[in-house]
Structure formats: C-alpha cells, structure tokens
Nucleic acid binder design. Structure first.
Length: 638
RNA sequence: GCCGCUAUAGCUCAGCCGUGGUAGAGCAGCUGACUUGUAAUCAGCAGGUCCCGAGUUCGACUCUUGGUGGCGGCACCA
C-alpha cells in the first residue's frame, strides 16, 4: 500500500506497487502523456520504475531541467540507432548530454558528411514515428561483455571491461537498438518533439590524443519546437556578436597569414586597448602595486632554472644570437623574481606587489587559436606578490575584492570561482602542495561565495583559483587567476631577511585580473555586441552638419570637446543627414550630435543616442555633463 | 598537433561538381551633379597573380597533389 507524496504536498494511496507512469495516469491523461521520468525520493528514475514503499514523487516532464536532460540523453540513443540503421558497420562508443544538447561518438571507416547528417536526422524522425518502447534491463558484466563482443562493438566491450567489480549493469533497448546506460530514459521514441543535428567533427577516443579519432556528431534537443527555435536564434545572435566579425566590421584589428595568432591593432581597436590599460594601471596604482617592465628576450638558462623549459619547450619561441640561445618570454614570473632579487629584501618590504603589462609569446598549437581569444602574442595584466606564508590569505582576499570591483566596472556581475589542485606533472613536495592548497581553500571560504573544486588542474608549480565571468549570453569565460607558488622563488634564489635576521624564501602569488588584454577585449566586444560603453568607445561622439553652412560651428564644437579630453570627430561631408546617421550608427558611435541652422542659432547640438533615442537639444556644457556622467559609470550594468 | 571543411575585388558573396575555354553582383572607393533635418540621393568610372607551389591537359579559378592561413570540433593551455 504505497503512499505517494507529490511535490505540492498532496498524497495518494495505492493498493499495490505502482509505476511512475501509473501514478501520472491516475492524476490525469495530460500528465501521463507528458511524463518522461520520475524523481523518487530525490533519485531520477524511469517512468516504468515500480514504487512499492511510501515515497515522495515528482513527475518529470519536458518543462523540468531534468526532463530536458532525459530527452537529450535519450536523443543521443535515438541518433545512434539511426546511424546504425544507415551504417551498420559504424560502432557506437559514448553519447553524453552536454550544454544545450548531446553528442555521440562513432567509430567508422570514413568521416560523416553534412549529407549523412541530413539522412540520419530523417531516420531519427522515422524511429520517432515508429514509437518504439524504451525498455530497461539488467545484465551482469560478463553477460554484457559477451553480448557486445558478439555484436562486434569493440568500444562498448572496452567501456564495460573498465567498469570495476561485478556490479549489474543497466541497458536500454528500443527496437533493434540496445545500449549500456545508467538512464533514465524517455518511455518511448515518440517523446521527441524537437531535435536537430548540428555538426560533425573528430574527437579522440577517451579524450586522449594518443588514441584513434572517432566521429562525433553533435545534436540539440528541446521539449518543444518553440524552444528549439529560440535556441537556434540564440546561436544566430552569438554569431552576430562574434568578435572576429565585429573586429573587421568596426575596423578594430586584423590577422594575417604572415603572423598567425598575432593581432594587428588598428586605431580604433588600439583606442579600446589603451583605455582598458589605463584603467588597469590606475586600479593597480591604487592597490599598491609597483609597475615594472622586463625584457622580451631572456637567456634560455633562466627558463631551465624556472622549470618552464622542461614542460613547455615545444611551445616557446626561441632565438639564437651570437651562440646564445634566448627564449622570447612566454610568461613574466621569472623576470619578476629577477627584479625582486636586486638588492637585499627585508620582511618589512613584504608584501611586495610587482605588476607588468607583460608581452608574452607562446607557440600555441595551430588548431587551438581562435581570434583574440587564444593567440600566440598577447599581453597579460600580470602581477606577482612576494609575501610571507602568513600574508597569503589576506593578499588573496584583497585580490578577490579588487577583481570583483574590476569585473563590475566592465559590466560583469557574476563571477564563478574554481580551485584547481595539484596536477600529475608538478614540482614541489606534497607537504608544500598541502600547504598551498589549504591556503587557497581558506581564502575561498573567506569570500563567503560558493566555489568548485577541480582536482588535477593546477599549474605545475602550485594550485590556482580561477575566476570566470558570465557574459550577457550566459557564456562562462575564464579570465582572472591567483596562484600560490612555494617553489619557483626558491628555484630562482629569491630570499628576504626575516625578523630574526635569518634568510627566508618568500611565497609568490601569481595573479591576473583580465588574463590577457587580447582575450578580455574579445570578450568585451561580444558582451557588448560591439556597442562599447562611452567609457571604452573609440569614438564617443560624432558631430554631423546638415549643410556646409554649419561647418565652422561643428569644427569649433569638436575642438572644444577634444580639449575636454573626449574622443570625438566631425563628419562634414556633403551627404544627407540620414546617410551619415546610418553610417555612424553602424559604426556603433554612442552619441551623434546633429547641427543645423536651428542649433547654430541657439548655440546647441541635437543629441541622438546610439539606439536612436532623441535626447533633444543641448548646450556644450550640458552635453559635457552628460558624457562625463556616462563615462564615469564605466561599463557597469544598470 | 589530430579529424573534417574551407580560401574568388577593400567587405559580403555568386561562378567551380555534373559540363575545364583566364570571372560577376551588392556594398565600400574614385569622379561629377545635388546643400540635404535623424538608419542608404542620382549618374558615371575604376577595381581581381581566383591563397602559394607542383601535376594532368592543347588549355586550370575549376580536376589531382603538396604547402600555408582560416573555420567547426578534439587534444593542449605556464
């Protein structure tokens, strides 16, 4: 006599054990039709699961995020079934859910083509029409291995053989297709309403580059056609914001074959860059950082001492000159230690915060480059804090405060924190790693914010906190970082004189707020869709005359604004005002100042905002006040 | 780096396979006319080593092949 309690608190009693689906049916046919799975006492289960004891139950439909997961996971099976109907020789491997969709990796003799994708999608539709029941079954590990061997599914055999113990495994069958899976899954193949295959690409078996390459087909699936459409619109929107496209359109920067992965900054792009840099310089000054500058070319031996050469030799550019090998610096830390090492340092000098807008070059693998986001030549807003062990936590806390404030100024209100701990390939003893990781954990806990642990992802010299921001498209971008390093200072001979006059090694904190200017500006362009706030805009205002008669007035107005430090220019071409407005609107200038006879007469300009809003006529002082206020607000969201 | 796709005018893109015969459009540019009130005035002109190399062919932007860059993933990311 199970008593089922529903999320709204109501309870129903049943004479005999019931399935999730039966409960849904007893509530109403509409719900039964929509039911995809259930959550019994917190655990996600199939709709066919039998409940025999008193339980809490939530019926999962497409409207739940769990329901969407179930749909996507099941859709991966649906796709695999379709692939094997069309290509019986294709072997299945894994097919998990990812953000917005799913993928499935296949081993096949050739690459799938876009035409194949269309054909697969069509067969998927047919299977949906067949409305095959999805049945769960349980097998022992050995039975499962035997079955997949028989089917010639070598990869599945490998997967099952790597599952430890003799635990029973669950399988899901729909028609002729069966797959190893934890589930849960939709009750039948008619449950799919909206899906689309989006791309095909190579992917290594088990994510290991030394393994063979499989064919990965990506798809997306939604609870309704409307949601699918919204998703596709979101993709289009993201494409419109692509910083590579906007960079060209707004004449900000370019790349060319002779310098792969290295940006050529144009005047307008460089203006944004310089504004960001000026801002960061001011922030650093206020927070007691000392700005320095160090060489681009440093003898290779320094990189050997620091430990970078042994791990990153293949990714460093090197230069030979007069029988000496130099590396073009791939990072700034060893150079900052050289600055620290000059002169005798006392504990009274600590914490010592050195900062550099450090130009770095790394030979990034060709396939990894992506516009400004991943380049071979970049400038970090790098900083190294030399301190004592006791000072770590306060320094990390101060850094986090600084970082949050900076991100807010750029319009990013949400920050995601992660702690990456010791990787396999590393320097330093386990005791030192214990200490470093603990100090970062303490610092994270002190922020009072949630954070996630990522084991094994730390730098080779120490653990790190990674600070990611969320842009307006909801995309997470890793930018800032702070890393504890007990090893490198010692390797490079950094010391200070302690209170008891003994020599001690300082702890070094590596830190960056933006990460790299290149990448951060790429993120800004996409976040604002090119509509840079007045603070960052390369051109803050444009003065447009109606006819030649107002030219002198416009030039004077322009000159006066420039004298106030604003970035403005005048467009006095003999063109219709509508033409000029269109052109500068497309160039995303925040303010357009129109001047005709009326304005000259009254000593004003007609102010039009980028979005088209008419702010009416303003005097010079009024407009200066407006623009000053706008600039002072930085890029903060309202 | 790996798998797949891709490269034509300053930009966005046709043409290319079936059918190999050295290229077209729109925007931008230049010239002229027009002196204009909030997202495109009209007319004319000019603009290309069809990414680079090799091969097949009487003949290659087109087919084959090698390179380079880019794109989508994967792997990597101090």
């Amino acid at each position: 006599m199970p008593k089922i309690t529903l999320p709204d608190g109501s309870a129903r009693e049943y004479e005999n054990p019931v399935t999730v689906m039966e409960v849904a049916e007893s509530i109403g046919p509409g719900l039964a039709k929509a039911a995809l799975a259930g959550r019994v006492n917190g655990e996600l289960v199939d709709s066919s699961t039998v409940i025999s004891n008193d339980s809490n139950l939530a019926i999962i439909t497409e409207r739940d995020s769990d329901g969407l997961e179930v749909i996507r996971h099941s859709c991966a099976h649906l796709m695999a079934q379709a692939v094997q109907r069309l290509f019986p020789k294709a072997q299945v491997t894994i097919g998990p859910v990812v953000e917005d969709g799913f993928f499935y990796d296949f081993s096949f003799t050739r690459a799938f083509t876009p035409e194949d994708l269309q054909a697969i999608e069509k067969v998927m539709g047919e299977i949906v029409k067949e409305n095959l029941t999805v049945e769960r079954s349980v097998m022992s590990r050995d039975e499962a291995v035997a079955m997949f061997k028989e089917m010639g599914e070598d990869y599945k055999v490998q997967i099952i053989e790597s599952i430890p113990g003799d635990e029973d495994l669950s399988f899901y069958r729909q028609g002729e297709f069966i797959d190893l899976c934890r589930g849960p899954h939709v009750p039948a193949t008619a449950s799919f309403k909206a899906f689309k295959l989006t791309s095909v690409a190579g992917a290594y078996w088990r994510g290991d580059a030394s393994n063979e390459m499989l064919q990965r087909i990506h798809g997306t699936a939604w609870g309704s056609k409307k949601d699918l459409k919204l998703f596709l619109q979101r993709l289009e929107e993201a494409e419109k914001r692509d910083h590579r496209k906007l960079g060209k359109h707004l004449d900000l920067f370019h790349f060319q074959e002779e310098a792969p992965g290295m940006a050529f900054w144009h005047p307008k792009g460089w203006s944004i860059y310089q504004t960001v840099q000026r801002y960061m310089r001011e922030v650093q000054d206020k927070n007691d950082y000392k700005e320095i500058n160090t060489p681009q070319l440093v003898d290779y031996s320094l990189w050997e001492k620091s430990g970078h050469a042994s791990k990153f030799a293949d990714e460093m550019f090197s230069v030979e000159s007069e029988n000496r090998m130099y590396a073009i610096k791939p990072m700034n830390c060893p150079c900052h230690i050289q600055v620290f090492n000059q002169g005798l340092k006392s504990y009274r000098d600590l914490p010592l915060r050195l900062a550099e807008f450090g130009s770095c070059h790394r030979y990034e693998p060709s396939g990894s480059m992506h516009g400004l986001m991943r380049v071979r030549s970049f400038v970090q807003d790098d900083g190294h804090i030399f301190c004592t062990e006791e000072q770590i936590q306060a320094e990390v806390a101060d850094f986090m405060t600084l970082l949050f404030a900076v991100y807010k100024d750029f319009g990013f209100d949400e920050v995601i924190l992660r702690l990456s701990t010791r990787p396999e390939k590393r320097v330093g003893s386990d005791e030192v790693w214990d200490k470093s990781e603990q100090s970062l954990k303490d610092a994270l806990n002190a922020t009072g914010l949630p954070w996630e642990l990522v084991p094994g992802e730390g730098a080779f010299y120490g653990p790190k906190i990674e600070c990611s921001l969320k842009d307006c498209m909801g995309r997470v971008q890793q930018c800032g970082t702070i890393q504890v390093d007990f090893s490198t200072p010692g390797r490079l001979g950094a010391q200070y004189v302690a209170e008891d006059s003994s020599k001690q090694e300082p702890v070094m904190l590596h830190r960056a707020v933006l990460g790299s200017f290149e990448r951060f500006i790429g993120i800004l362009i996409e976040h604002y869709a090119g509509d840079m706030p007045a603070w960052l805009a390369p051109e803050q205002a444009l003065i447009l005359n109606i006819t030649d008669k107002q030219s002198d007035y416009c030039r004077n107005f322009e000159e006066s604004l420039k004298n106030k430090g604003f970035r403005v220019s005048a467009d006095l071409r003999n063109e219709k005002i509508g033409f000029k407005i269109r052109e500068h609107t497309l160039q995303k200038v925040p303010y357009l100042l129109v001047v005709g006879d009326k304005e000259v007469e009254k000593g004003t300009v007609a102010v039009r905002k980028r979005g088209g809003e008419d702010l009416g006529a303003m005097t010079f002082d009024e407009f200066c006040t407006l623009l000053n206020q706008d600039v002072a607000n930085f890029g903060r969201s309202a």
